[in-house]
Design a binder for these strands. Structure first.
Length: 884
RNA sequence: GCGGCUGUAGCUCAGAGGGAGAGCACCACCUUGACACGGUGGGGGUCACAGGUUCGAUUCCUGUCAGCCGCACCA
């Protein structure tokens, strides 16, 4: 094992560390829930990525946030379980295997046959299924791989069957001939939410349909003239005076010899188009309803492959797109086309392949939503589910209030085959938990199983409990279900979260999780969505390769704010890498200064000096702040608190203060500082561990007397013993003084290496005592070889002067100082102070403010005014004494 | 049409009813015994606009404008 030490590189190298550390954790069983229940159970199920997919930044963000939540609870003493797994991703996986089949062998799945094809997909899964889980490991995810699940595992398949059959028996799953969303390219039905609507420019064709009796014509308006061969009526609004006389008459459908009736239906909007609506029940969901109301026939003129049927006569065989033009032209030639009007409308596209979705009449299986949505809704409204951020709760409820039945059958081969068998003898349907060999009605053995499989989201909806062994009553289910938190992107709120909720409520009687944390998308540097087609994607594995997993994690977690998108910028990763390197080097510093014989001891308050007291106060405040943010899943804010403490307070200030004690002669002082350094570092590493687990573990392993692994260490408690407002107040004065001197040095261009003399004139003996106490710090930080501290007195004219609370700091610079510049600087300072004083005087002169503002606010403002006023007096004095 | 998000420094973004913040970029200085993936100092913002509530608003409310996103869609 490499140890950070003097002999080692000053730059942390994640590549030499991460694999080894991960293997140590995984082989050590650290990711499995501890046996003793400790503070209680805390569990998360991982949103299962596509088994044959590769990791993208969205997964990386999602996994990082989950890992932070899990590692935090593990350190805090909970028995934690994070269940990983993958999803069979029906359409995507099938499409990929079909593609390779085509490329390599020039075959289609139909050439292979169902059984062989499915076997081929399983082989594919064996071969590529491990990629993404390996990538999740590379990220450092502390999930329990011994419990890894796949949606098509026997256990989970059993759960799917149980749910399907139960819902069928309850009448909540039914088979029906209805209009569904059909993707002609994927050749399967889709649910409503798998359709993406996009605004497109279209044409509204006005077409004249002549009356059979020759007494005139009605003009309908349609964007889809190619569907007119399946028209079965023209509808007008019953109250539309223009068309009263036409209701009940027959029209002759142009381009075909059929006649269709004019009907009246409230659905028609008289204001739109011509007020006459052609009714095509098999090709439009609204027309389907109208047709059903009026008992109209359902004719189909477009097939499942998107081409026109024989019903279209001469147009049969054309694609939908070709037919639209051809039909419009034919209508124009024959004088039926009255007008072409530009018309913007939203067109549905297949979420997966982008093909325009066809409303298609077919036999499909549906989940009846009302009975499932209602109880879920009631529980959500009763506050049984917490959303972070809260606004998603309303969006979630609105969706559940309006859901329509869920089409769950897919015309694919890869997935959970629908457990329904049709009898060729009597036509009955047998739905069963076990495979069926004979009809449950007539006992015939001439039964065949439904060809379709279930929507992948059907099995995902059961994930929180199916992964735990449901429907069996397992120990895990008992202990870890319902789960504590679900972390996922807001983009699958409806697809996944909502469905888990109603399935969980229905089948387990409880919400499947208590809290849902929704994060945003990771976009590219310009704010655009990353996509393969745009080629703007960033591979997380490249980031890990170049900067380490910790840097990637820290970048993603730091730049997240609840529910909002973030942009991926390489410079941010660089910043994270730099921070990690800073931690590494601060640790090296501590290690090389502890000495070989170091044994941590309890801190003895009396031995602590001001800087020690200050850093411990800051530490406990940081612990409290980080814990509070993590408790409410505010990952970004927690990270910021740690970053500021680590870099500013610990590295920039405390380590520099510590050097005084460390390099001094006082052995006891030295021990004391070593103990403080050790305490702060170990606790800081623990705080940081959920975000940057690798580097913190690596350092932890090198620290003396740390037993075991950091992954299983203890989260620090903020200790009230370390609260020390007095030390903080004093230190902030000291730091102000140091900054003031640095400022003078920089402005007067005094090289840092050039030492100076200093004279601090205090207002009171108390102030003098304070500066005497921190004399070493001031001299070291200001590089002052000579420091005089007095009460009152007069400084030489040839000095640069800074005024701080309670004192004036003079740096005598006879001959070196441009007094004109110094006077200018003082006047600038005077101006600043005057404006502050005026602002506060105005505020305090306001009677309303004095009367109504809280007393402590008024007091604080008065104190500020007094401070500024005193400084102003001092600055003016100085201006007078340096006047020419 | 309904609903939501965003608008703060050149860039990317935090923040909060009471003196405008960070990182990066920029300028100047510094090889000080953890770190140049570093240190010190500095410049830079009417917190989109207009009203309202309040002693006090960049923060809360309403509206406007701009950008983005859901949901529902009338052919």
């Amino acid at each position: 094992m490499s140890t950070p030490s003097k002999s080692l590189s000053t730059v942390y190298d994640p590549r030499s560390v991460e694999k080894r550390i991960y293997a140590m954790w995984e082989n050590g069983g650290y990711f499995q829930p501890r046996a003793d229940i400790g503070k209680g159970a805390y569990s998360i199920v991982m949103p299962p990525p596509n088994v044959t997919g590769v990791l993208h930044l969205g997964h990386a963000l999602d996994s990082t946030l989950q890992d932070i939540a899990i590692r935090y609870r593990r350190l805090a003493g909970y028995s934690t379980l994070w269940v990983p797994g993958t999803d069979h991703a029906g359409i995507a996986t099938q499409a990929r295997v079909e593609q390779s089949l085509k490329q390599e062998e020039g075959k289609t799945r139909h050439d292979l046959g169902r059984e062989n094809f499915v076997e081929r997909v399983w082989t594919w899964k064996q071969e590529y299924g491990g990629t993404i889980t390996q990538q999740i490991r590379a990220l450092g995810a502390s999930c329990d791989w011994s419990r890894e699940r796949f949606t098509m595992d026997p256990g989970l398949s059993k759960a799917v069957r149980e749910v399907f059959v139960t819902l069928y028996e309850e009448g909540l799953i039914y088979r029906g001939n209805r209009i569904i969303n059909w993707c002609p390219r994927c050749s399967t039905a889709l649910s409503d939410i798998e359709v993406e609507h996009e605004e497109e420019k279209g044409i509204l064709f006005h077409v004249r349909y002549p009356l059979v009796d020759g007494s005139g014509a009605l003009t309908i308006a349609t964007t889809r003239p190619e569907t007119m061969f399946a028209d079965v009526a023209v509808a007008v609004h019953p109250a539309d005076e223009r068309y009263q006389a036409y209701i009940g008459k027959e029209l002759r459908l142009p381009l075909s010899e059929r006649t269709i009736p004019v009907i009246a239906d409230e659905y028609v909007d008289p204001e739109f188009g011509t007020g006459c609506l052609k009714i095509t029940p098999a090709h439009d969901p609204n027309d389907f309803e109208v047709g059903a109301r009026h008992g109209l026939p359902m004719l189909q003129c477009i097939n499942s492959d998107g081409k026109l049927t024989d019903l279209a006569g001469a147009f049969a065989g054309l694609s939908r797109e070709e037919a639209r033009l051809a039909v419009a032209n034919a209508l124009a030639e024959q004088g039926f086309l009255v007008e072409r009007e530009e018309h913007d409308h939203a067109v549905g596209h297949c979420e997966r392949c982008g093909t325009v979705v066809e409303p298609f009449l077919s036999d499909q299986w549906f989940v009846k939503m009302e009975a499932l949505a209602q109880p879920a809704l009631e529980r959500a409204r009763a506050g049984e589910l917490t959303f972070v951020p809260g606004r998603f709760g309303r969006i979630f409820e609105q969706w559940l209030e309006n859901v329509r039945d869920w089409c769950i059958s897919r015309q694919l081969w890869w997935g959970h085959r629908i457990p329904a068998w049709y009898c060729d003898e009597c036509g009955a349907i047998t739905v069963s938990r076990d495979d069926v060999t004979c009809c449950s009605t007539c006992q015939s053995t001439r039964v065949r199983q439904d060809e379709d499989v279930l929507d992948t989201w059907f099995s995902s909806a059961l994930w929180p409990f199916s992964t735990m062994g449901w429907p069996d009553n397992t120990a895990d289910l008992e202990r870890f279900y319902p789960t504590s938190t679900l972390v996922t992107g807001y983009d699958i709120l409806f697809f996944w979260v909502a469905r888990m909720v109603f399935m969980g409520v229905h089948f387990t009687g409880t919400m499947p999780f208590q809290t849902v944390v929704l994060h945003g998308l990771v976009r590219d540097a310009k704010g655009q969505k990353m996509s393969k087609s745009k080629g703007n994607g960033v591979d997380p594995m490249d980031v890990i390769e170049k900067y380490g997993a910790d840097a990637l994690r820290f970048t993603l977690a730091t730049n997240t704010s609840p529910g909002n998108d973030q942009r991926f910028v390489w410079e941010k990763v660089e910043g994270s890498r730099n921070f990690i390197n800073k931690i590494w080097n601060a640790s090296r510093f501590v290690l090389m200064n502890l000495g070989d014989d170091f044994a941590p001891q309890a801190l003895r308050v009396l031995e602590l000096d001001l800087a020690d007291q200050w850093i411990l106060d800051r530490l406990q405040a940081t612990i409290a702040e980080v814990s509070e943010h993590l408790n409410v899943y505010d990952f970004g804010e927690a990270a910021r608190a740690m970053y500021d403490f680590a870099w500013d307070d610990f590295c920039d200030w405390y380590i520099e203060f510590a050097k005084i004690g460390l390099y001094g002669e006082d052995e006891q002082r030295k021990r004391s500082v070593q103990n403080v350094l050790y305490t702060v570092l170990t606790q800081l590493l623990t705080l940081l561990h959920p975000y940057i687990p690798f580097v913190t573990e690596e350092i932890w392993q090198a620290l003396p007397k740390t037993s075991g692994a950091l992954v299983a260490a203890q989260w620090p408690e903020p200790s009230t013993n370390w609260e020390n407002a007095d030390a903080v107040r004093k230190m902030s004065l000291v730091m102000d003084a140091i900054r003031a001197v640095r400022n003078v040095r920089a402005e007067l261009q005094l090289a840092p290496s050039k030492s100076v003399s200093m004279r601090i004139e205090c207002d009171t003996d108390r102030d003098k005592a304070l500066f005497e106490q921190v004399r070493d710090m001031i001299q070291r930080f200001c590089h002052a070889d000579d420091l005089v501290i007095t009460v009152g007195g007069t400084a030489p004219v040839q000095s640069a002067t800074q005024v701080v609370t309670g004192a004036r700091i003079h740096i005598p610079l006879a001959g070196l100082i441009d007094m004109d510049a110094e006077r200018e600087r003082l006047r600038k300072e005077e101006k600043r102070l005057v404006s502050e004083v005026e602002r506060l005087e105005k505020k305090l002169a306001n009677a309303g403010f004095i009367a109504k503002a809280p007393a402590d606010v008024v007091a604080a403002e008065r104190e500020k005014l007094a401070d500024y006023a005193a400084k102003l007096v001092a600055v003016r004095d100085r201006i007078t004494s340096v006047a020419e």
